[in-house]
Every structure is written in C-alpha cells, then in structure tokens.
Design a protein around this nucleic acid. Structure first.
Lengths: 338, 338
DNA sequence: TTTACTTATGCAAACGTTTACGCGGATTTT
DNA sequence: AAAATCCGCGTAAACGTTTGCATAAGTAAA
C-alpha cells in the first residue's frame, strides 16, 4: 500500500496537483465546489501531507528540539511537559536529546541541528570546560535558541531561569536561623551557571551570619556513583551541620549519605535542597525543598522560542526572564510554625 | 547567511552535485583524490545534509516517535531514557508525544504519524473506551509499531511488558503474610492492560488466602485531584488494611491519603505499590515497591522496533517480551528480616 | 463587437538529495 | 590495431509540495 499523495487525489478527481494543493489550503483562487470535493476526497483517502516535502519546500520542519542532561529528574521532566504543552498549541513537534552530562554529546547534537530537522532549540547545558563554541556557532548562524535554567551568559541568547542567588541566600539564612553553625553547599561544577549563582547566594548568607567563615563547598558531577564516596570524604573532613543542595541530584545524594552516616535530622543536621520531587512531603528525615516552577519555565521558554522562530519583536526585558522559586518547608517545621 | 548545500561544495570545487553526493558517501565510483577534496570542503564549510531532502528522497526520516501518558513519572522517564540510548546507537532521533491520559490526543497524534515524520512508534496507551482503531489502522498500513507496558492485545503488534500477574500475586501474598486481612487493589481503568493483569494477580492471591472474599477494587483516573476525594470515600466505605497500588500515580495518592487519615504504617496498614521513584527508600511511612526494569523495557522495545523498521526477522518468541519486575522491601522490613 | 478584467485552473520550476544511465578517455584484451 | 573493459564523472529524473505565471472561459465595460 503506497502512501496517498496530492497526486492521488488529483488523478482521482481529474484535477491538477496545483489545484488540489491550493484547495487544501483554502485558497480563494479555487471555487467553493472544487475545494469541497478535494477536501472530501482527502478525508476519504486519509491523505496526510508529507512533511519532508513541505518542509523541504518551506525550509522549515514544524519541530523544536529540547536538549537536557537527563530526563529521570523531576525538574527536567516537568520542564519538558511545559514545553510540550506550548508546542502542541503551535502545532509543533518535539525532539528530545539527552546529554547525560557529557559535553561531547551536546556538541555532537548541536552539530546535527543545522540540517533542517528542527526550527529551534531549547537547551539546558552541561558543563563544558572547553566552552560553548558549538552553541555560539549555531546561534550566530541564526538558529533560534533559548536557554533555560542552566544557561550560558557568553552566548547572546534569550533565557528563562529562576532567582537563584536570592533563593539560595534565603535558604542558607534559614539554615543558620534553625541553628546550623557550619552549613555546606553541594553543587555541580562551579562553572555551571546554576552552581555559580546559587553558590553566590550561599556565600552572601555565610558572610552575613558568620563573617570571615570559610565556605564549605562540594562540587559533584551529578552522577551518584561518583559523587557519593567523595561526599563521604567531604563530610568526614569538614563535619558540616547543615546542607544546601543546589541540584535535584544532590537531594538524593544527601539522603544516601544520611542513611549511611546515620544522620539525626533535623536534630543534628539541617537539610535544604533544590528539588521538584513530588514525594518530598513524605521523605524522612524531612527535607525543606526549593521548588522551581518547572512547568512554567518550560512554557515560558517555549513561548520565547516561538517568538524568535516567528521573528516577533522581543523586548530587552523579555530576553532575561526570571521566575521565582519557592521554599517549601519540611512538614516538621510547618507543624512547629503553625 | 544561506545554508551550505551540496551545490555550494560542487560550485566551489568545480564538480557536479552528483560527484559531491557520491564522494560524501564514499562511493567507489569516485577517485580517492576527489573524495578527499570534497570531504575537506564539506568540513570547512560546515556542510550538513538537509534531512528533508534526503528524507523525501529515501522515504524515511531517521526518527522514531514515543507516545506516553506523561513524562513526570519515573517509570516513563526511565523508559524514554532507555529508548533514547538505543535510538542514539542507530543514529535515530526521538520525538515525544504526551497524551496526558486523553484518548483524543492519542488519536490525533496517531493520525499525524502517517506523514513521514517518523519511521516507527513506541507507545504505552491511554485508556480509550472507544477502542484502538487508530492504532490498528496505523499498524495495518504497515507503520512499524511496538507497545510497551500499557499494551493493547487486540492490535497485532510486538510488545514488551513485565510479569504483571505474577508479581501482583506475589505482592498481594506479601500483604497477607504481613498480617493484612482486607487488602485493597488500587488501579487505573480496569480495561487497561496493566490494570487488568495486575488485578488478576491480586484476585488470585485473595482467592487463595481468603477464599470467597470480595475483592476491594478502586479504579482511579491517574489524576490526583480527581482521585484523592474518591479514594477517601473508598477508604471510609471499605476500611481496607493494606494496599496494592498498581501504578506509580497510586503510590503518591496513597501517601496523600495516609497523611490526611493519619495512617500508622506499617502498624495499621501495609503499603505496596508499583513505582520507580528513586526516593522510595527514604519515604515515610515506608513503602514496599514493585520496581519495573524501566530502562531495559525502553531498550528492548526500541531494539524490537528497529528490527521491525529494518525488516529483520522477528521470531514469534520475541514478539511478546516479558521482563520481570522485582519487589524491593521497605527498609523497616529489610531490617527485621536481616 | 472589441477590450478589459475577473475567476478558476493548469504548467512548470523550485526546495536538496540520491541514483540510473550515459559518455568520454584510458587501459587492457584479442 | 580494433574491440572490450573499466574508471571517473556528468546529466537528468525523481521524491511530494508550493507557488509564480500563463491561460482559458466567462463577465463587464466601452
């Protein structure tokens, strides 16, 4: 069974393919009667326009690409969901690329995008010690692109992120207020935007609550198997009494550590982490979560990307969109507060 | 800056586009010298073959589609990750479609796939009281397709799933062995494959441990906002003392219920649920999890799909692939066991 | 009746690739 | 030396769609 094309319809109705094409697009050049006949036939034959043909002709694909480090992560999966909802509104399709924190993969994927497969890219980058020339090249070539969450400031592209510095400051302050004396910061690579900004908030709080203190900084890879032993060593060396996890992967890592070291939380240790896990309220020991508006980030980033794709005017203020995160207190603290 | 095509290279080197095309594909018809010149030029110019053009020509897209109810769910996100890893091996791209448990969306998406955008489909269906004619049509038309997890037996398509009946029987037995007298089954729509098979396992155990007892069955929609009040009513009416959650969404629902009804678990209630949440070991009250090999399911399903796409022989035994789930005891029980 | 203009349709080119076929020229075979 | 073979490359058609231009018929204006 060969596919039904515009030609099939044309032959069946004794019309030219040009007429059929125009009729299907409701062109005013075609008579009402013909238009209806064509549409009827298309429906009956189950005609579906070939996307490669129209894409080739139009130079577009009605597809956007999403590149993220991983999808087994509530933050990213919620972002993807937000992106998908907007894409659907615009009748666009969504390609996903998982970099698994491997900069080589990110470069390879970026290289693949210049070929008409996608009309734009939404990306949350992976740490790359060699910089982001691959993204700069893409952007310079006029390829529509928007960063979210893990952005790259050197690349001149609109972005959507959260109030990292402020919320981290607030969270660290909370650690001190609850009695922590030596709170530690657990981040990913310090060069990564989210680590840098969140660490800045942490450090500002440290300076304020404990002037002159040396910040306790742990830099993870995002891969539990690698990070756990290193976190253990970090713990043994510095004996922190509170933690700010600056990424979702850090939250689980802390729990692994806690269960092995037999933490008494919140008696001995205060735990706060960025995380979008929906099970947070039921975790034990309880966790205070910094929740990012992931779904909205996805939506806003996608809306922004479509503005770029459709070449709509983007006001300078829109180019750097900042959505606020919120701190969701652990159940134990909520109770003692009420 | 217009895109660099095969023509650009041809003009620059004074060759025909045919030669360039062949040289890029390492055709033996082209001299070594020319081949190298062409490749060098392609590299310098950053040439990327236009996928619409080659796709149109070849009638393929090097893309597969994945259709799932949602992505904010560890099971599905792990499956997607598994799929993506295989797709990458085959140099294929991955489109995602989220149905959000809406059969209308599933039908609409299925209708979109006949147009050359994807070469195959991996799908975990949504309950549809009108049946699955849309999938049957696609499959009948020769579109490569593989089901995973939520499959449809009426549609003659290979699938990958887990030992639903057996593991549910085992889990329900465990509920009884731990002292439950009236365990309840929480599933999605009873017509859905996973609900039906898991329920069968539950009922077999009920028959065995408490012959003649009436099974306590709750049918949820998968949307917490709708399900929670109904689950409350169910709880008040039947007073079950144990639960088997037959889907990841049921696990969280149980915790919501538990926190509102102030469950004492496992003193008063036994909790077992299908779930791939990585935070399970840290949940309180503790949960015994039925963990599906999600990543492997994704991998196997994708491998199967590629066999279909590449028209390789698929032995009857391969058409129904069953991977075993495993029961991960709650920490409290592990301790008392050790 | 001729001219001008509208309406409905067809022709053909173009998007970028791939590939069957053909054609010179060099090399080998008879 | 003529014939056959082969190498390296070019010409052109095809994939399915869209669209500028042409054209035919019909209608209105002069």
């Amino acid at each position: 069974m060969q596919p039904v094309t515009i030609k099939t319809i044309a032959e069946q109705l004794g019309l030219s393919i040009a007429t059929v094409s125009r009729a299907l697009k409701d062109s005013h050049e075609i008579s009402q009667a013909t238009r209806e006949k064509v549409k009827q036939a298309a429906l009956e034959l189950g005609y579906q326009p070939n996307v490669n043909a129209s894409g080739l002709r139009a130079g577009s694909s009605k597809t956007i690409a999403v590149m993220v480090p991983e999808v087994e992560n509530h933050f990213f999966s919620q972002v993807i969901s937000g992106i998908e909802s907007v894409a659907r509104e615009y009748d666009y399709h969504v390609l996903i690329y998982l970099t698994h924190e491997d900069p080589k993969k990110e470069e390879a994927f970026a290289h693949l995008l210049g070929n008409g497969r996608a009309d734009g890219l939404l990306i949350s980058v992976t740490h790359n010690k060699n910089g982001y020339a691959h993204l700069n090249r893409l952007s310079q070539a006029g390829f529509p692109m928007v960063f979210f969450d893990r952005l790259v400031e050197e690349v001149e592209v609109p972005h959507v992120c959260t109030n990292n510095e402020a919320i981290s400051y607030e969270a660290t302050s909370l650690l001190y207020q609850r009695g922590a004396k030596k709170p530690a910061f657990l981040g990913l690579d310090p060069d990564l935007f989210i680590t840098r900004t969140r660490q800045a908030g942490y450090q500002r709080a440290v300076e304020q609550f404990d002037p002159g203190a040396i910040p306790l900084l742990f830099a993870g890879s995002g891969k539990p198997a690698q990070d756990l032993p290193r976190l253990h060593a970090f713990f043994k060396e510095h004996h922190p009494d509170g933690f700010l996890g600056a990424a979702e992967s850090m939250a689980l890592l802390l729990y692994e550590l806690g269960s092995q070291e037999n933490f008494q939380i919140p008696k001995d240790y205060q735990l706060i982490s960025f995380t979008n896990l929906s099970a947070v309220p039921f975790l034990h020991p309880s966790l205070t979560a910094i929740v990012q508006p992931a779904f909205e980030i996805g939506k806003e980033a996608a809306e922004l990307l479509f503005k770029v794709i459709k070449k709509k005017k983007i006001y300078p203020a829109e180019r750097k969109r900042i959505l606020p995160s919120c701190i969701r207190l652990a159940a134990s603290l909520r109770a003692s507060k009420g």
